[in-house]
């Protein structure tokens, strides 16, 4: 018998109240990170507050201007959604590259964003498209959302409700998966948006980041040739037994060119 308490509230308000009342609570979304973390004893919360009982957090809507994805929508639903495939095919492709089929059936976009794993795929799309993260209390621009290694702008107890993606003129995503885990060693989401070109990198740094100088190189035309010769400094990039920081820097440049070259029109 463990002391773990389990709750399944039916509203965001009730969930936030349970969180405020708990000793050391965690929200539970799809559980594809949190449940293994509990099994490995890397975390031992007092309470699990399951968000699965809250209506309105699963589903996709939108039009040719923006796509709205509910925070509890599993990756596999996004990957196969007709609206997403039509308007932002790179977003559907990214969702379909996460984990494996079983993980995509359970894991959610909101859970992934709140976790802000340095090698997660979703942050690249959210930052690359300049999306907005809507929570139970405010709207947060992607540029303000990711703040560090497993760190976000979310306040204690704040819950992601949905993500709004503006439809770009075109977008592409290129990634190099680690052979065993499938997590990207480095990946770049490239988008030509109404506000200009955007390039977001995941897997290579403590959290997702933009290549703002490279974006300027694309301002004259969304053409991979304009990135030729641009190099990223290895300082501060991730290094582990899969890849050195210098190799990741090299991969970022290659992935950036591939993402731009492969960008599909919306």
């Amino acid at each position: 018998m463990t002391g773990l308490r389990y709750h399944r509230p039916d509203s965001l308000t009730a969930a936030a109240e349970l969180f405020a009342a708990g000793d050391d609570p965690r929200y539970l979304a799809g559980g594809q990170t949190l449940v293994p973390v509990l099994r490995l004893r890397l975390d031992a919360p007092s309470d699990l507050i399951d968000l699965a009982g809250i209506d309105g957090l699963v589903g996709i809507s939108g039009d040719r201007r923006e796509i709205v994805v509910g925070a509890m929508t599993p990756h596999g639903i996004v990957a196969n959604d007709a609206l997403v495939r039509e308007h932002i095919p790179a977003l559907a492709g990214l969702a379909g590259a996460i984990g494996d089929p079983q993980v995509r059936n359970r894991g959610t976009i909101g859970g992934s964003l709140a976790n802000s794993d340095p090698a997660a795929d979703w942050p690249a799309a959210v930052l690359g498209l300049g999306a907005t993260v809507h929570t139970d209390r405010r709207a947060i621009a992607a540029d303000d959302f990711f703040t560090g290694l497993f760190e976000t702008a979310l306040e204690t107890g704040e819950i992601i409700a949905r993500i709004v993606f503006p439809v770009p003129r075109r977008a592409g995503y290129a990634r190099v998966p680690a052979p065993a885990s499938g997590f990207p060693l480095a990946a770049v989401f490239a988008a030509e948006t109404a506000g200009g070109p955007r390039l977001a990198v995941t897997g290579a740094g403590p959290c997702v980041f933009r290549l703002t100088e490279w974006e300027e190189a694309l301002s004259g035309g969304f053409d991979a040739g304009r990135l030729a010769g641009l190099a990223l400094a290895a300082d501060g990039l991730n290094h582990d037994h899969h890849a050195s920081a210098a190799y990741r820097a090299h991969l970022v440049a290659v992935m950036a060119r591939r993402a731009v070259a492969g960008a599909a029109p919306s």
Partner: peptide, 17 residues
């Protein structure tokens, strides 16, 4: 689980309510 393949070691029993 409700017609979709899942890994039963990454789902809590209480989530299958």
């Amino acid at each position: 689980l409700d017609g979709r393949a899942v890994k039963a070691c990454t789902v809590l029993a209480v989530q299958a309510e």
